[in-house]
Simulated scan of single mutants.
Amino acid sequence: MANGTQEPFVVGSKSFTAVAINTAAKAGEWIKSKLGDINRVDTKYSSHDLVTEVDKGSEKLIRNLIMTHFPDHSFLGEEGVEPGPEASSKALKEVSDAEYLWIVDPIDGTTNFVHGFPFFSVSIALAYKGEIIVGVVYDPARDELFVAEKGKGAYMHGKKTTVSLDSKLSESLVATGFPADRNGALPINLKGTLALAPKVRNLRSGGSAALHLAYVAAGRLSGFWEIGLSAWDIAAGALLVQESGGKVTDTAGKPFHLAVRNVLATNGQIHDELQQKLVEAEATGL
């Protein structure tokens, strides 16, 4: 955790990480209080990607809390952006020059939430000059909080997280997602799924990219890939994986940065093998 003296994690006496943790926990509590009280469901982008008033309320709560502490910082949240890949890329570009940028997904796994399937999370990241320095992913259903600070490791409830030791795809539990973009990202991801299913120990698709990344960091999964994600899905989780000793790139194997939409995150040991299989299946999306 930030010790109160080290830049760039602290402004004055305020720890960025403490604010991120506190904000994620408060948003998680609020989301949990709304379970079973889903009054109205709007459809966003496609029927696979449902959004409720809870999404919007959670983001408002997060934005207000962060801006109270850091009024000069910039903020990129999913709810402020029109659905679809073009809008996501444009929104990121508009804030790409910000010195401090908070990148937030108020509920990653909205569809799960709407159906009462307990696999969703709050994702909060802070980038400093384009580089992620704080990442928090909170799972309210399990009360699991994953935290990373650049250069200081990653933790789950104070215990250091480390990636799995699996060295071969055939020994690995790997996750992916089924994107809402049915015409673009989904068919590509299905190609990768078809190619990888026989090669891995097994495949999972929980429906929250942020939690999948947290699970790679915690060693529960050895790898995760998905086509067509946005910065708010990946930012916090990417730092968790890196600070746990894992590797994050795009699906072509190039270094991760905030504009990456096709992501590959692993324990490092199976990275090249998994990446190669995606290339062979023409499933990188690039």
Rank of each mutant, 00 (worst) to 15 (best):
K93Q: 11
T251D: 03
P140H: 03
E79L: 08
V134F: 04
E99R: 07
T68H: 14
S15D: 15
I21T: 08
K44V: 10
H257V: 13
E243K: 05
F256G: 08
A25V: 15
E94G: 11
A236R: 09
A283R: 07
P255F: 00
G253A: 03
L286H: 15
S74V: 00
D181R: 01
T193M: 06
M1V: 14
E282W: 02
G246F: 06
G84C: 09
L229M: 10
I21E: 07
I124P: 01
G116P: 11
V41G: 07
G130A: 05
S46L: 05
V174A: 05
G116N: 09
S172V: 04
L240S: 06
S167L: 13
A195S: 12
S13Y: 11
N267Y: 00
A24I: 10
G153I: 13
P255N: 04
D166T: 08
A127V: 03
G219R: 06
L229P: 04
V122D: 02
P179S: 15
L278F: 09
E99Q: 09
N39A: 09
G206S: 01
H212G: 00
S170D: 14
E94R: 09
F224I: 08
M156F: 07
V260R: 13
S123H: 05
E78V: 05
S47G: 00
